[in-house]
């Protein structure tokens, strides 16, 4: 325990906690939309493309978070376009893209001899979050939160029935695009926290856990954020106490919270 109290004096731990909480806060409501709209696979595909963004950032000498954000946005737009004109099912299309993107990312990283720790990209490197990272994450989280706040009703209407929303005057295509861009931004900042492979878990698990506790969409979004924050705190604690990798510990904590939520009788 003395070890823990010593650790609590260190800056990196507080940076890590702040970064984790920022991501958990915005991934709660976004995760709800991912669950309601059944976009888990979509999130996975976007996340897996992040590695390619890292490579591009290296080649073009751009800050990695910005590079990943930009490349995820580009892919999100491409996906929306592809989904509309494919004979293959969306599921199949995403399955192809998701893994091809991951493979492409890993291959380009090694091809260009980029000096990165692949494992930390894949599984997150929360304890290495620096001040500059934190500022970028805060900006991205603020953008997502603002968009969510102003588009909330439109996003809900669009999720319930796209054509009904369109007839009632919701700009459906713009709303869809905004949701995609928010997801892309989230992925760019969540990469540091839980890594490319586990981002979808952070998106889906807190939202799914919140379902049983909620009676309105707003409640579900807030509970999802809260559960995500708990997972970050517990995961980080576990990671320090038992020296386990932070990202997977957070996801595991979220999984345990999900199981705990299932014990509650259904509402």
């Amino acid at each position: 325990m003395t070890q823990l109290s010593e650790l609590l004096q260190t800056q990196f731990l507080w940076f890590a906690l702040a970064a984790g909480l920022l991501v958990a806060l915005v991934s709660g409501p976004l995760g709800c939309f991912a669950v309601w709209r059944r976009m888990a696979y979509f999130g996975d595909t976007l996340a897996h493309s992040a590695l390619l963004g890292v490579t591009l950032g290296f080649i073009l000498q751009i800050q990695p978070t910005i590079a990943v954000g930009a490349s995820c946005c580009a892919l999100a737009i491409l996906l929306v376009y592809l989904q509309r004109r494919q004979k293959l099912s969306v599921d199949t299309l995403l399955g192809i893209l998701s893994h091809s993107m991951l493979a492409l990312g890993i291959v380009t990283v090694s091809l260009f001899g980029i000096n990165v720790d692949l494992l930390s990209l894949l599984l997150g490197d929360l304890l290495a979050v620096g001040g500059q990272d934190l500022v970028l994450m805060a900006i991205a989280a603020a953008v997502i939160a603002t968009l969510l706040y102003f588009l909330w009703e439109k996003l809900l209407a669009f999720t319930l029935h796209e054509e009904l929303a369109a007839v009632e005057g919701v700009p459906v295509e713009k709303t869809r695009l905004a949701l995609m861009l928010m997801l892309a931004l989230l992925i760019a900042i969540a990469m540091k926290v839980v890594g490319i492979l586990l981002i979808t878990a952070l998106l889906i698990i807190p939202a799914a856990s919140a379902r049983r506790l909620s009676r309105t969409p707003e409640q579900m979004a807030i509970f999802a954020s809260a559960i995500g924050c708990c997972a970050v705190i517990f995961g980080l604690l576990a990671s320090i106490l038992w020296d386990t990798p932070a990202g997977p510990s957070i996801v595991l904590a979220a999984g345990v919270l999900f199981l705990a939520a299932q014990l509650r009788p259904n509402r």
């Binding site: 009703e153 209407a157 319930l160 929303a165 379902r211 009676r215 309105t216 969409p217």
Partner: peptide, 13 residues
């Protein structure tokens, strides 16, 4: 997975 009551739906937007 979406918790939404009839009342909320009628007032949505």
């Amino acid at each position: 997975s979406m918790p939404m009551s009839v009342a909320r739906f009628l007032q949505l937007g």
